[in-house]
Design a protein around this nucleic acid. Sequence first.
RNA 1: GCGCCCGUAGCUCAGGUGGAUAGAGCGUCGGACUUCGAAUCCGCAGGCCGCAGGUUCGAAUCCUGCCGGGCGUACCA
Length: 557
Amino acid sequence: MATVRDRLKSMIALSARSIAGYLEMQAEVGLELEIPRNSGHGDYATNFAFALAKRLKQNPRQIASQIVAGLDDSTGLLERAEIAGPGFVNFFIKPSAWYGIIREVLGDPGNYGRLEAGGGPMVQVEFVSANPTGPLHIGHGRGAAIGDVLANLLEARGRRVQREYYINDAGNQMDTLGRSLFYRYQQELGKDVEFPDNHYRGEYMRELAREFIGEKGDLFRNCSLEESLPVFTEYASRRIFDGIKEDLELFGVRFDNWFSERELHDRDMVGKTIEYLRQRGFIYENEGAVWFKSTAFGDEKDRVVVRANGASTYFAADLAYHRNKFERGLETVIDIWGADHHGYVDRMLAGVQAMGAEREAVRVVLVQLVNLLRGGQPVAMSTRGGEFVTLREVVDEVGKDATRFIFLTRRTDSPLDFDLEVAKTRSNDNPVFYVQYAHARLCSVFEVARDRGLDFDWRRAAEETLPLLQVREEFEIMKLLGEFPEVVGECVRSLEPHYIPYYLHQLVSLFHSYYHDNRILGEDAQLTKARLCLALAIKEVIANALSLLGVEAPEKM
RNA sequence: GCGCCCGUAGCUCAGGUGGAUAGAGCGUCGGACUUCGAAUCCGCAGGCCGCAGGUUCGAAUCCUGCCGGGCGUACCA
């Protein structure tokens, strides 16, 4: 059993084999089916003939007619296929063919839209990876939602996936963090010390200082910064990191692995990676610093890996980190980065190539920034003053589901306006409720059906009654249900999750409209059963799609 | 200055490899509850797809140049 789309596609591909010259080139020509806007152009249409015509240097209409003539419709899928315009082929599907989609969905509801889990190589999605120097803000939240959902989507397509968080717990920012706590601690104890510039001055640092006092009292009142710094650094980073984990948990995001940068240094993997690259001829010394020859792979300039003062750069650690990924046997790595790091992509991919891996082994997804608004007015997001709205605050205020859904509704590379007021409104402004409402409504229908004593065995009902579904909207819904696996596939191909929320909106909109015009639980017992089958299929697909997004599918609202 | 991303309805945004008459939500205005959930539905209006050239059977989509916006351009992380 396969969707109508897949069956049609393989039928066309089979027919094309009879065209002279096709077999020699078929790998290079993609066969795509689109759903025409205009229903007069059929249920599906393809411009395949144009693509072939270009390669074979023939008339598109002629090729189209060969394709149509060669179609072997032994399973009775097609009502007719016609050639239109300069060479489109329009396919009209037999109405009865759509009923199979309902059987397909209900046959294994939880797995509809998923492919068999394959035993192929592991894909790693690395995301969030925020420094443990402060709480997650809303921008991290967007990256968290996107990374988590991309991982879900990859799993749905049968890939084995590892979710990893890279902890930047090394370097002088950690010392800065410890000093920040040290000074706040002294201040909280009433000492008149000045808080230095360029330190973490957020309110969370004062709270941390108070908690520190609660645990250790004034034990370090008279200690020098030098001797007590390790204690403060350890405490601050541990507590902040615990908070980050907690915030992610609340946001519905879990990781399989937490990778520590410090470990990289402790095991001298940075130095070893530089030596490794030196052996491969991509390292040289200049003006007291050590450079990586990233221009060899298209970067605009070479990059420093060890500064003249002997300290290695963040980039050097990142090279070691990615080398480690490959050493762990990962063949494909997806890095989710903030768009402000886009200048960093070329040098990282150069590093990947210098290590002998394919450039394509690492795919970088750049997530654009989030503009936080309240009632249309920008909310101040001053990082310098340490006053920013944390992810935690947003999730507490508007809820996990709405927050995730909104993050996932735009393309990743498009900046996002996040309006706290809009996010809380329960209107069409806020599509998450629109979708969840449809699910709750469907659940309610089944509750009423049970109350009325309808014994509903979908398998028997489907066998006997599905042909009673004859309303135009019913066919439209079945057709759209059949598109769901394709939508998941498109998300994975493009690493863009936003197609799922759009799909959901489209499906739910069709359902609400259908529901308004037609009674599911009606006078006719047979028709009622048929419509319950359809309703159940819709409910399952909504639930599946929401589950991929990490958003609840409520039974009541 | 240079590099990357982006300019689509009043607003926020969709528009895989170039395809047929450019879509959705919100907002405005006007309608629909005795019935399975009105957190819903139906309708009207709204467009030189930033501008100008080019490529071809065909361009919102590809190329070039302008205009306008965001980000980046460290021996910071």
